[in-house]
Design a binder for these strands. Structure first.
Lengths: 203, 203
DNA sequence: GTCTATAAGCAGATAGAC
DNA sequence: GTCTATCTGCTTATAGAC
C-alpha cells in the first residue's frame, strides 16, 4: 500500500538539516525551517518539542550518515594503495559541494563538546578497520616505517578535509575560478594518496 | 604622563574578541560582552553603533594578528628545512590552546564569504614569500619535484591546522588525555616538515 | 495532524539623567 | 563617558480551533 501523502516528520527533518547545517544552531530560525519544509512553526513544535530537541535529532544524524561508506572502503579486500585512493576520492566527491557540513560539525563540537558522544562510535570503525590492520602488518613485516595510527589517520583526514573547508580562502588567494578549483581537487585525489604512501614506505 | 584609567574601547574590544571568537556572530550576546568588559550594554553602542559593526571590527583584526609572525618565518634567511620546522612549531604553539580561533574564522567565512576581503591581503604575503621563491628555485634546479604553490601551501596548512581544530574528536577517538595530546602535537612538529620535504624532494 | 493567533521571553538598540 | 531604565522587534513556544 503506497502512501501518497508525504511524511511531515521527514519534511521537517530534511528542512532542519538544510538550515541547521548551513546556519548553525544559533543562526538557524524555526521560521526558516518551517518555510523550507512548507509547513508552519507550530508543527515543528508538535513533532519536536523545542529547537534544541530538533537540533539534536539533526546533529546526531549528520555525521553517522557519511561514515558507513568510508568504513566500507577501508574494510574492503583492496590493497592499501587502492583504499587510499578510493577513500580520498569518495571524501572529496561527497563534500566538494557540501563543505559547510564539516564546518558545521567542527563548529558545533567546539561550541559544545558533549555532542561528540554521537560521533565517536561512528569513528571507532575507522580505527579498527581492515585498512589499519593492513598498515600494522606492513609495519611488522618491515615494509612500512612505524607510524602511530593517530598520526596516519589525522594526516589522511587533514589533507582530505582542509582543501574542502578552506575553499573560499584558497580560491581567492590563488585566484581560481570554479573550474580550476575542481581541477585542483582532482589533483588532490592523486597527490594525497601518494603523499601518505611516501610517508610510510621504506625506501 | 601615565594614564591610570583604562581605555574603555580597549576593554570592549578585548571582551568582544573573547566572546565572538568563542560563540560566533550569531551565538554571541551583547550582554555577555558587556559583562566580560565590566561595563554595560549602552556603552557598547556608544563606541560601536551596533552588533554588526562591533563584530566587523573584531573579525577584520583576528586573522591579520597571526599572519605577520608566520610571514616573517617564511621570509627569513633560513633554509627551507628550518622554515618548515619553525612555521609548524609556531603555528601549533600559537593555536594549541586557541583552536577555537581557526574554527571561528572558517565558520564565519562560510556564513558570509564577503568577509574574506580583510584576510586575503594578509595571505598574499605567504604566496610571495621568500620561502616560495626558494621552492621555485629548488624546482628549477631539479632539486625538487614540480609542485604547484597551491598544493604545497594547502598541504602545509592542512597538516598544521587540522590536528588543532579536530582536537576534541582526536582525543576522544584515540583516548588521549591532555598530556598525550600535547605529546601528539610535539610529534607533529617533526612529522609535518618531514612529510612536506619528502613530498617534494627527488630521490 | 495541521492550522491561525497569540503569548512570553529575550536581545539589540535608544532615551535621557548624571 | 557612563549609567539606568525602557522600548521595539524578533524568536521561541503555546493555546485552541478545525
Amino acid at each position: 500500500m503506497v502512501k501518497t501523502k508525504v511524511d511531515s516528520e521527514e519534511l521537517i527533518l530534511d528542512a532542519a538539516r538544510k538550515v541547521f547545517t548551513r546556519k548553525g544552531m544559533t543562526g538557524a530560525r524555526m521560521q526558516e525551517i518551517a518555510d523550507e519544509a512548507g509547513i508552519n512553526k507550530a508543527l515543528l513544535h508538535y513533532y519536536f518539542r523545542n529547537k534544541k530537541q530538533l537540533f539534536d535529532a539533526i546533529f546526531d544524524d549528520v555525521f553517522p550518515r557519511f561514515i558507513p561508506a568510508l568504513i566500507q572502503i577501508l574494510n574492503s579486500d583492496n590493497s592499501i594503495e587502492e583504499k587510499l585512493s578510493h577513500f580520498v576520492s569518495h571524501y572529496i566527491d561527497e563534500f566538494s559541494h557540501k563543505a559547510y557540513i564539516p564546518v558545521f560539525i567542527l563548529n558545533e563540537i567546539h561550541q559544545n563538546p558533549e555532542r561528540l558522544a554521537s560521533m565517536s562510535m561512528a569513528i571507532e570503525g575507522m580505527k579498527t578497520s581492515r585498512f589499519m590492520v593492513q598498515i600494522s602488518e606492513g609495519i611488522e613485516t618491515g615494509l612500512y616505517h612505524p607510524i602511530k595510527p593517530a598520526h596516519l589517520l589525522s594526516n589522511l583526514i587533514s589533507l582530505s578535509v582542509f582543501p574542502l573547508i578552506s575553499q573560499p580562502l584558497l580560491t581567492r588567494v590563488f585566484q581560481m575560478d570554479d573550474k580550476e578549483y575542481m581541477q585542483f581537487l582532482e589533483e588532490k585525489k592523486k597527490l594525497i594518496p601518494e603523499l601518505i604512501l611516501e610517508s610510510i614506505k621504506r625506501n
